[in-house]
């Protein structure tokens, strides 16, 4: 894998890879093919590509109908629309009907950058987590994106997946294997556990780990690529091991990764924890770098939060 490859290229290449093996793979878009990069898929499989125009609700409903006859639709739009605009269609036509729609929301959280507050989903994972039996994912690099897409296609049931379109530093070796609902330990540690999801926050968590190491703090880093179903066993194991946890998400701390981890901890093994993410705010415009600082989504902020939390650890 070429370093720092665009995630959207991996998305399209993986769709092509899946479609070459399985005639049932179809792609739906809502007038964002050029942004998502799926034009290459259309060139290869024109009959299996459906551009529904600027009509996201209709796209999700059509995807549901296609899946009712055995197709495996990947339907993509910006995360702001995938969540807020088509929640009812995804909820009823896809999930309530027990169909098999893979809904992809791109430009998660502050990655929406120049599109600004209207386009900045800080709530998509949270509302999707409230849909019974729905699988909710966010990959952090090229390898995990490809492998999680393959697993999603193999899994019968609707999936919501956030897609970071931009280039990112690879985290995993090419041969790493993934399972839906099973988090990945990226670094082992004994003082504190940092649980993150998505391209931005997993990379920032790794940066925080390096900073903490300089202070003599050994942090475990977990990539919780699936927030539903959440990897309860892994959370409990690391709660026992480090007795302090921080969650980091490019999302509201309400009902996202932080909530999911807090639920597991409070019901099974009450443990000192802190949630880092968006605190009851709307998005706004700016570069991703500016916005990460603005909302405290940086390695430095994570390291500070970890240090503070550790002061409370007995």
């Amino acid at each position: 894998m070429a370093a720092n490859k665009e995630m959207r290229s991996v998305y399209t290449e993986t769709l092509i890879e899946l479609a070459e093996k399985n005639n049932n793979i179809v792609v739906l878009e809502a007038d964002l093919m050029k942004s998502q990069g799926t034009v290459k898929f259309m060139e290869k499989f024109p009959e299996r590509t459906f551009n529904i125009g600027v009509a996201e609700a209709n796209m999700v409903g059509i995807a549901a109908g296609l899946s009712a006859l055995g197709k495996i639709p990947f339907a993509a739009t910006f995360g702001c629309f995938a969540g807020r605009r088509v929640y009812d269609q995804f909820f009823i036509s896809a999930n309530y009907a027990k169909l098999n729609v893979k809904l992809v929301g791109s430009d998660p959280g502050v990655a929406a950058a120049y599109n600004g507050g209207t386009h900045m989903p800080f709530e998509d994972l949270g509302i999707m987590r409230n849909i019974p039996k729905c699988t909710v994912l966010e990959a952090c690099d090229q390898v995990s994106l490809r492998k999680l897409m393959i697993k999603s296609a193999e899994h019968y049931g609707s999936v919501y997946m956030r897609l970071h379109r931009k280039p990112v530093e690879p985290v995993y070796p090419e041969n790493e294997e993934f399972e839906l609902g099973k988090g990945k330990v990226l670094k082992d540690g004994s003082d504190i556990t940092i649980i993150a999801n998505g391209a931005i926050m997993v990379h920032e968590a790794l940066a925080a780990e390096a900073l903490l190491q300089k202070e003599g703090i050994r942090a475990a880093i977990i990539d919780m690529h699936t927030i539903k179903p959440i990897d309860k066993d892994l959370i409990i194991r690391y709660a026992k091991k480090t007795k302090a946890l921080i969650t980091c998400e490019n999302h509201q701390v309400v009902n996202g990764l932080g909530s999911a981890v807090a639920e597991v901890l409070s019901e099974n093994i009450p443990t000192l924890m802190a949630r880092l993410g968006i605190n009851d705010e709307f998005g706004e415009v700016g570069t991703q770098e500016f916005l990460q600082k603005r909302f405290g989504l940086t390695g430095i902020a994570i390291a500070e939060k970890a240090t503070e939390l550790l002061k409370r650890k007995i």
Binding site: A64, G65, A68
Partner: peptide, 11 residues
Amino acid sequence: ISSAIGLALAN
């Protein structure tokens, strides 16, 4: 209507 369109496209 959207579901029906999906069924028709699949057929």
